[in-house]
Amino acid sequence: MSQLSSTDTPTEEAEIATDTVREAMLEQLSAELGDALVGSHLEPGIDLTIRVTADAWAQTAEFLKNGMGFAYFSFVSAIDWLPSPFGRDMDSQVDLALEGADPKEAEEMIWGLAGGETRFQVFARVNDIVGHRALTIKADVPADTLTVPSWVGTYAGANWHEREAWEMFGINFEGHPGLRHIYLPGEFEGNPMRKDFPLLARRVKPWPGIVDVEAMPGSDDEEDETDAGGSND
C-alpha cells in the first residue's frame, strides 16, 4: 500500500522563497516571448500575471506547457472592461433610468493587473503541479476581429472553456473544432456576460440596496445602526 500514498511533506514554503520562483518564471517568459510580452504584474508571494499579444496567445500556451512544465490547464475565460452603460446598479435604490435621469457619461475604461488596451481581454490560468507554480495569462482581443488563436491544440480541456467564452462574450477562437452554444439554447442571441447586455431582473426591479447589514459578532451594535440601511455613498 505504501507506493499508493504520497510523501507526507507539509510544504511550508516561505513566502519570500516563492518570489524568486515567480521572478525566474517572468524572466524565462520574457526571454522566450520577447516583444510579445506586453505587460506583467508580480505580486510578491501571491501571484504572477502576464499579458501577451493576441498573436502570441497560442504560442504562449505551447511554451508554457512544453517549455516550462505548466501541464495543468485550469481555465480560459474573458473580461469585458467596458463600464456598464446602465450605470452602476448598486448605487441607487430606484432605477435612475426609469426615473428619467440622464444617462451617465461613459466612464473611462480602467484595466486591471498587467494593463490592457482593448475592451475585451481573454485570460487563462495554468498550473505547474510538480513545482507548485501557477500564473495568469491575459491577452487583449483585437477590437475589429474579436479573434484570438485557440488553445485546444495545446490543452484539449480548453475546448469547453472557449465555447463558453465565445457564447458569453462573443470572442472567436481561431482553430477551435466547433464553437457552438454550451449553456444557452441554440437560438439565443447576444452575449450575456458583456457589460452592455442588460440584466433584465435588475431592469424590472430595482436593487433594494444593502439593507440588512448584519451585526458583526463581537462589535458594538448600537453605534452605527442608523446608517446601516443607507447605501447611497
Binding site: S74, F75, S77, I79, I110, F123, R125, T136
Partner: peptide, 23 residues
Amino acid sequence: GYYVISKGDLVPYRVKIRSASFN
C-alpha cells in the same frame, strides 16, 4: 477557484468561477 476583479465598489466587477466539475 474564484478570479475576483474588484474596482473598489460594493460589488465585484467580474467573478470568474472555476468550478471543478466543469473541467
